[in-house]
């Protein structure tokens, strides 16, 4: 039962992944996305933590680890780089 449910959900998401439009993320600013996402697993680092070049790497790392879309990650990185 659980396997079936799981596979069904997986197929739904996989199909969705290829056709999605980021309606909700489009309406959010980089600052808001940072505020909502970067404290979900650990304390949120403040923008002053890193230089621009370091943020480029750290945010890309978190894009993969925390499953962010490229749109979200780019907005967050841009915010961190202007606020540091």
């Amino acid at each position: 039962m659980i396997t079936g449910l799981f596979l069904l959900a997986l197929v739904a998401i996989a199909t969705n992944a290829c056709t999605t439009t980021n309606s909700l993320a489009d309406t959010k600013s980089g600052a808001q996305l940072w505020g909502e996402n970067c404290l979900r697993c650990h304390n949120s680092p403040s923008p002053e933590t890193f230089s621009d070049a370091e943020w480029d790497v750290a945010v890309m790392h978190m894009q993969v680890r925390a499953n962010l879309t490229t749109t979200e990650a780019t907005k967050i990185a841009d915010f961190l780089k202007t606020a540091n």
Binding site: L10, I13, N16, T21, N22
Partner: peptide, 14 residues
């Protein structure tokens, strides 16, 4: 792996 939106619900998958 990645993330996407089902309407207004954000989802992620792997």
């Amino acid at each position: 792996r990645g993330a996407s939106y089902l309407g207004n619900i954000k989802t992620n998958y792997s």
